[in-house]
Every structure is written in C-alpha cells, then in structure tokens.
Design a protein around this nucleic acid. Sequence first.
DNA 1: TTATTACTGTAAAATATTTTTACATTTTTT
DNA 2: AAAAAATGTAAAAATATTTTACAGTAATAA
Lengths: 171, 171
Amino acid sequence: MSTILVIDDKKEILTSLEYLLTEVFDKVVTLESPETALQVLMQQEINMILLDMNFHLGVNTGSEGLFWLEQIKKVHPDIPVVLFTAYGDIDIAVRGLKMGAADFVTKPWDNDILLDKLRAIMEKERKMKTLEEVTEEHMQKAIDKCHGNLTSAAELLGISRQTLYNKMKKK
Amino acid sequence: MSTILVIDDKKEILTSLEYLLTEVFDKVVTLESPETALQVLMQQEINMILLDMNFHLGVNTGSEGLFWLEQIKKVHPDIPVVLFTAYGDIDIAVRGLKMGAADFVTKPWDNDILLDKLRAIMEKERKMKTLEEVTEEHMQKAIDKCHGNLTSAAELLGISRQTLYNKMKKK
DNA sequence: TTATTACTGTAAAATATTTTTACATTTTTT
DNA sequence: AAAAAATGTAAAAATATTTTACAGTAATAA
C-alpha cells in the first residue's frame, strides 16, 4: 500500500492529480492548504508528498512553501517531498533541494515526467541497505579519508584496528 | 593540511581566487581546463574542488561542466565539488546538485559568501561519524520505515530480531 | 643516512555480541 | 472470536571484537 499526499491550493489541480497519480499510488490524499499537513501525517501513513510552493496568489516568493517543507522534514525526515514550483522559480527549487526535497517539478507539468519522477523516487525508497552494507560503505569512506591508513581510519570509526583490518582482508 | 583545486578557464579569476582562498585553505591549486583534473587528483591530495561550469565561450549550456563533475565524482565520490555557475544558470546548478555537488556559487561572486560556503563544507567534511553512530541511525531509519515493527525492521537490516531488540532497549 | 617513530601483518586469549531456539504473552489482523 | 504475527524474556551456541603482543616494513625526522 502506497499513499501520496498532494498539497495545492487550486482545486482543479488537485482533482486532475487525484486521478493521474493512481497510476503510481494506491491512494491519493489531497489538501488545499499545508496548515493541516502535519496532522494528516500523524493520522495516516504517507509515503510521499507533492508540495506546491506558491500559496496566496500574489505572494509568489515560495518562502511559505519552504517553511512548510522545513516543518515536514523536521518531523518526517524520511518521507520524500517533491516540490511543485512555478516555471522560472528555480531559485526556490534549489533552496528546497538543499533542504532535503527529493526532487521538483515545474508547473505547468508534463504528466509523464511527473509520473516518472515519482516512480523513480518510490523505487529508490523501496530499497533499504542492510546494516552490513552500510557499515562496509562507511568503513571504506573512513579508509579513503585516511588515504589507506587503517590505524587512523579505525580510530576515526571508533573501532579497533584489528577489526577493520580483518574486515578489509575478507573482501 | 588542506588543499583546494580551482578549475576555471579565465586566468584573472584563477589569480584572484588563488589569493582569496588562502583564507580557508593551506594550498590552492589552479587549472585552466578540466581535462587534466583527474590526473591532478591522482598525483596529490585534494580536499575540495571549485569547478567552473562554463568553458568554451559561446557554448554556455554548462553540460561540459556537468560532464566533468560526473567524471570527478565517479573516481572521487567523497571530494566535495562546489560549482561555479554564471548567474541565471540555476538549471545547471540544480542538475549539478542532484549529481552530488556540495554546493554552488553564482558568478559574479561575493567573496564572503564564497568563503563561508567553503568553510561550512570543510567543517562538515571534517566530522566523521563513528560506526556505532552510523549503524544506530540506519537501524532507526529501518524501524521508522517499518512503523516500529522490530521484526520486519530486523529482516530489512539483515540482522536478527533479538539484536535489534536489545540495541533499542539500551537507549 | 641513521635513528626514530608509526603502521602492518599475524596471532591468540579474554570479552562481548549475535544468532538461534524456545515459549508465554500481548497485539494486530482476518 | 479465532488465527496470525509481534513482543518480551531467556539462555546456550556460534561469532565477532577487543586487547595484548611482537616481528617486519614503511615513513619521517635528525
């Protein structure tokens, strides 16, 4: 079961997305305003969020959208949030990406591109590395940072040189 | 000892940065073209890269810059690369960020902003989490993904339920 | 260049952790 | 209400990690 939450202040957009997104999601939840988004996230399992950045016609800085992105990420850092920005609003999109947004789509949007992006994110999300893979990668990173010096890499990692040495020998 | 590699095709820019960046780095290496960048990376330890995105005056798509970013990241995924883009070229910057760039700075640049960004990245780079912290975080992520179900989280992580259960009890 | 210091490769005993197995109890799903 | 799944607990067996040790090698400083 996968659910997407769509937040946009235009009803027409919500209704057209509601239909389109069933291509990828089992359930589509819509909201006309981000105010109650945090509540919705508490009440039901949401796997992805599509967040419009421009509420309040006239106030088009997108900063309100960034504010809500921040609120959402604070409570649910792992739910991917896709930003819905007006074309040309790329500056906001960049700031959003740096705040942890998964991707962004410009309005007016292309259905296929939108669906592809959402599918790609879901696919990435589905995978979860094993603990072994994660530790392996992190050890390798430490070794790289220490230019191959196992002694100092082990110290960085907070484990004994012996352990690091043995693990590296295996592979 | 920290070294930054600056790649830009304008000599004036290289010389002015060469001086400025000593504020943050012990050594500043400059290159007028990215062609030899990979060689330089093999020969000496580079801790950060400042990469201009617009070579070949007239060809301003930035795609050449993205190409080199990709090449660099392929060999050295952990060296932070800061993109230097012309103002308005934000689209390229976004694609760069998604390809793993650490940040980007628009030209003409503000010295203080540039230095602050580089300092922030160095600071972030300096820290390295211990293996325990990394595993802890990853376990927590798995548990979140499974909505608290330890049994399935353990399965996702590739460890026994018992181990996950005990670790969670500790904290 | 030599002396010094630091890192590797190897080993083995002491500790600690993880897995496995098991079962009564609670929670969730059908 | 019954069935299925997850928790909380435990304890022995299997593994993994730390600690300690030392000879050989590489890097660094005098």
